[in-house]
């Protein structure tokens, strides 16, 4: 059964009140909420090459109407984000019906932004610029000493125009009171923002939370390799806490008191 039929059935049977997918408008593939009131729109239903954070839209809708039943076309990254939002009680699984579609690379998306799959094809523009943004954190650590790593990140962060795009587009940034707007942590009105605090605050929040969808890096006008940074944060989280955000319905280790610890404090080397 093709996806249009499936959506029609879900709507008609009342399994979902609104279905979030894409449609084509003036040559742009944009998200759209399909409901029983606009069934005729269904013939334009598309599975987009462009990714938008549909699960973020779902949280907005849920805010307005908590028991709304929402259907979503979901790729792997959408599904990971949904899992994470369930564990943080932002959405409840009873109200969400994901319809899984092909992940990238696929018929819907022939090149991949997803780090897990085709790292080398990512960000041609960025590669052209001479910095391979999909670098391997291990190589980065091995090839650069402390000072070089510091220079690199300070250079990257200093390009920031403080657009808050990384936070705004992120499906798992849902706080009503964002630390990045807290004047005690990040000085208001200063541009570039206080570095590296601005980015490290966000990086810390993304530890145990970022599901590596890459939307932030896509949205960053300064081409800062945010995904690389957050991926390394979660490499640490998975080493230290044995937790992968979005993989299942397990709560983030940062929200609970852990049980058994096998780590030893590190020796102080001079």
């Amino acid at each position: 059964m093709n996806i249009t039929k499936q959506v029609e059935q879900l709507l008609k049977q009342g399994d979902v009140d609104i279905f979030l997918a894409y449609r084509e408008l003036d040559g742009h593939l944009i998200p759209h909420g399909y409901t029983l009131d606009n069934l005729e729109d269904l013939e334009n239903l598309k599975v987009s090459q462009h990714r938008y954070s549909l699960e973020k839209v779902a949280t907005h809708l849920t805010e307005k109407k908590p028991n709304l039943k929402i259907g979503i076309v979901a790729r792997d990254c959408n599904q990971r984000a949904l899992n994470l939002l369930y564990t943080w009680n932002q959405l409840s699984p009873e109200n969400i019906t994901p319809l899984m579609v092909n992940c990238c690379p696929s018929q819907t998306r022939n090149h991949s932004d997803c780090t897990y799959l085709e790292p080398k094809k990512t960000g041609t523009f960025k590669q052209k610029k001479g910095i391979d943004f999909n670098e391997n954190p291990r190589e980065f650590m091995d090839n650069n000493d402390n000072g070089q790593r510091f220079s690199r990140w300070m250079y990257e962060f200093s390009k920031c125009i403080k657009c808050y795009g990384c936070r705004n587009i992120c499906p798992v940034c849902f706080c009503t009171d964002c630390s990045l707007e807290n004047p005690d942590l990040v000085e208001p009105g200063a541009l570039p923002p206080e570095i590296p605090i601005f980015h490290l605050v966000r990086a810390t929040h993304m530890a145990g939370r970022c599901i590596d969808c890459g939307l932030c890096e896509d949205a960053c006008p300064a081409e800062i390799p945010l995904r690389f940074l957050y991926r390394e944060m979660n490499r640490i989280v998975s080493d230290v806490f044995d937790y992968t955000p979005g993989a299942g319905l397990e709560k983030s280790p940062f929200t609970i008191i852990g049980n058994e610890v096998t780590l030893e404090p590190r020796p102080m080397d001079a």
């Binding site: 742009h28 944009i30 657009c163 795009g165 587009i169 896509d218 949205a219 960053c220 006008p221």
Partner: peptide, 22 residues
């Protein structure tokens, strides 16, 4: 209008915005 997003397929900004656009 509840929020603003960048239009990913737009040739000018290619899915990015500044703080004013957001």
């Amino acid at each position: 209008i509840n929020s603003t997003l960048p239009l990913k397929s737009h040739p000018v900004n290619q899915g990015k915005l500044c703080i004013k656009g957001w």
